[in-house]
């Protein structure tokens, strides 16, 4: 089942940056890469729940601000030797508008 929700415009997120969507249960971090691709993952690092939205975005990855784990934005998986995974949400941009699929 999909449940697409418009969340805002692409230009509201800086390149290599991120913004947060708050829902009743958790926050979703929405990222914009250097090539204007958009990804959304649950804003909780698999390590100790650090806010990935506050990390540094590089390539299609984000580095968590708390202890430097690097998480793939495509899969939500921790990269390298670290192990763990955070939820991924489908995201798309149409006419400059970002939507994410809350599932």
């Amino acid at each position: 089942m999909s449940n697409w929700l418009e969340i805002g415009q692409l230009k509201e997120i800086p390149q290599q940056g991120s913004r947060v969507v708050k829902t009743a249960d958790y926050n979703i971090a929405v990222f914009r890469t250097v090539n204007d691709e958009v990804f959304a993952v649950k804003d909780a690092c698999p390590h100790k729940q650090g806010q990935l939205s506050q990390g540094i975005v590089h390539g299609k990855k984000v580095t968590c601000p708390l202890h430097n784990w690097t998480i793939s934005l495509e899969s939500g998986e921790a990269l390298g030797p670290d192990e763990g995974c955070t939820n991924v949400f489908m995201a798309k941009v149409e006419d400059g508008l970002i939507s994410i699929d809350l599932g």
Binding site: L5, I7, G8, E12, I13, P14, R19, V20, V21, K22, T23, A24, N27, V30, L102
Partner: peptide, 11 residues
């Protein structure tokens, strides 16, 4: 300003 505000709040 974007640094401090959420882009969207879903109730």
């Amino acid at each position: 300003p974007h640094e401090f505000a959420s882009i969207k709040v879903v109730s």
